[in-house]
């Protein structure tokens, strides 16, 4: 009689998987987001008149500057992918039925991609100076915006 010791079974060959890169991304984007988010909060809420300065014209003024455009696009893309990947982790934790899990993860990335596209469009094509009638819609802010806009 010989004792057969089974060869330890290893899980199915770990093929290429993105988990490592996901893990690294969460940390790298986290570090950048600390700078971007707190820089954003500081510029909006603390500098000058602080929070009282925020209105349509303030945002329009910021988005007229390539510096803030790049800042905001970076923040938008990094945070959305970060948040979506974080939510993917939660879905992987709690979804027990495989097709539901897959569907939810797909939905997450579709929403993420859509928001990134809309966000980038808004940030790069934004023009505060529509025609006079749209400026008048802004009420009190309209005067500030009109001051920003070149005279037609």
């Amino acid at each position: 009689m010989s004792v057969v010791i089974e060869t330890p079974r290893s899980r199915k060959r770990p093929g290429f998987n993105l988990e490592k890169y996901g893990w690294m991304y969460m940390r790298l984007s986290g570090v950048l987001l600390v700078i971007l988010i707190f820089g954003h909060l500081f510029a909006n809420l603390m500098v000058g008149e602080g929070i009282h300065a925020i209105n349509f014209a303030f945002v329009a003024g910021k988005w007229a500057s390539p510096f803030w455009q790049v800042w905001d696009v970076t923040m938008l893309v990094l945070a959305l992918i970060h948040g979506t990947n974080g939510m993917r982790t939660l879905v992987n934790d709690y979804a027990e039925v495989e097709w539901i899990r897959r569907t939810l993860v797909w939905l997450l990335w579709i929403v993420c991609a859509t928001l990134i596209v809309i966000g980038i469009l808004a940030l790069t094509t934004f023009t505060p100076c529509g025609d006079a009638s749209s400026i008048s819609l802004l009420g009190k802010d309209g005067a500030n915006v009109a001051a920003l806009c070149p005279v037609k």
Partner: peptide
């Protein structure tokens, strides 16, 4: 083995 979907990450 541990660099797996169900591994350390």
């Amino acid at each position: 083995i541990l660099n797996d979907k169900e591994g350390v990450w």
